[in-house]
Simulated scan of single mutants.
Amino acid sequence: MPYEAPTHTVERSLRATTGAKIIAGVDEVGRGAWAGPVTVCAAVTGLRRPPEGLTDSKLLTVKRRTALAELLTDWVTSFALGHASPEEIDALGMTAALRLAAVRALEGLPVRPDAVILDGKHDYLGDPWKVRTVIKGDQSCIAVAAASVIAKVRRDAMMAELGADCAPFGFAANAGYPSPVHKAALAESGPTEHHRLSWSYLDELPRWRHLKKNRVPAPRPAAVEIEGQLGFDF
Rank of each mutant, 00 (worst) to 15 (best):
Asp123Ser: 09
Ala223Gln: 14
Gly93Trp: 01
Asp123Ile: 01
Thr95Ser: 07
Pro128Cys: 04
Thr66Trp: 09
Glu204Arg: 15
Glu52Tyr: 08
Asp90Thr: 05
Thr73Asp: 10
Ala84Leu: 05
Ala218Pro: 00
His194Asp: 14
Ser85Val: 10
Glu204Gly: 14
Ala146Thr: 03
Glu225Asp: 14
Val131Lys: 06
His210Asp: 14
Gly36Met: 04
Val62Glu: 15
Arg215Gln: 14
Ala33Tyr: 02
Pro2Gly: 12
Ser148Gly: 05
Leu125Cys: 00
Pro110Phe: 03
Val26Gln: 01
Ala80Gly: 11
Ala147His: 07
Tyr177Asn: 07
Arg132Asn: 07
Pro180Lys: 09
Ala143Thr: 08
Ala145Glu: 05
Thr7Leu: 07
Ser140Gln: 13
Asn214Phe: 13
Thr7Val: 10
Val116Glu: 02
Leu106His: 01
Glu204Lys: 15
Val131Asp: 02
Thr18Asn: 01
Asp165Tyr: 13
Leu68Gly: 09
Ser198Cys: 09
Thr95Glu: 12
Ala223Glu: 15
Trp34Pro: 00
Leu54Ile: 01
Asn214Tyr: 11
Arg154Gln: 13
Trp199Asn: 11
Ala157Pro: 04
Ala96Phe: 02
Val76His: 01
Leu60Ile: 07
Ile226Asn: 13
Leu98Phe: 09
Ser200Met: 06
Ser179Gly: 05
Lys212Gln: 12
Ala145Ile: 00
Ala222Lys: 14
Gly32Asn: 06
Phe234Arg: 14
Lys136Val: 01
Gly19Ser: 01
Ala222Asp: 15
Ala80Val: 05
Arg64Pro: 01
Gly93Phe: 01
Pro168Gln: 12
Arg112Lys: 13
Pro206Trp: 00
Arg215Leu: 06
Cys141Glu: 14
Pro2Phe: 06
Tyr124Gln: 05
His195Cys: 11
Gly137Val: 02
Thr17Arg: 15
Lys183Asp: 14
Gly170Met: 02
Tyr201Ser: 05
Asp90Pro: 08
Asp203Pro: 01
Ala20Phe: 04
Glu227Lys: 13
Gly176His: 03
Lys212Phe: 00
Gly228Phe: 06
Pro2Val: 09
Gly25Ile: 00
Arg154Met: 08
Phe234Pro: 15
Leu162Arg: 12
Asp119Trp: 04
Cys166Asn: 15
Thr77Pro: 02
Tyr3Gln: 10
His210Trp: 14
Leu197Asp: 04
Val153Thr: 09
Arg15Asp: 06
Gly108Lys: 02
Ser78Ile: 00
His182Tyr: 04
Leu68Gln: 11
Arg207Gly: 09
Leu202Arg: 03
Trp199Tyr: 15
Ala69Glu: 08
Asp90Val: 00
Thr73Ala: 11
Thr66Arg: 14
Leu230Met: 12
Ser200Tyr: 03
Ser198His: 10
Ala105Met: 03
Ala167Asp: 13
Arg99Gly: 08
Val116Ala: 06
His195Lys: 06
Asp74Thr: 13
Asp119Leu: 00
Lys121Tyr: 05
Arg104Ser: 13
Val149Ser: 04
Asp74Gln: 12
Leu92Val: 02
Ala164Lys: 15
Gly19Met: 00
Asp127Thr: 09
Arg196Asn: 10
Ile226Leu: 12
Ala102Leu: 11
Val216Trp: 02
Ala172Ile: 03
Asp119Lys: 00
Ile117Thr: 04
Ala167Met: 09
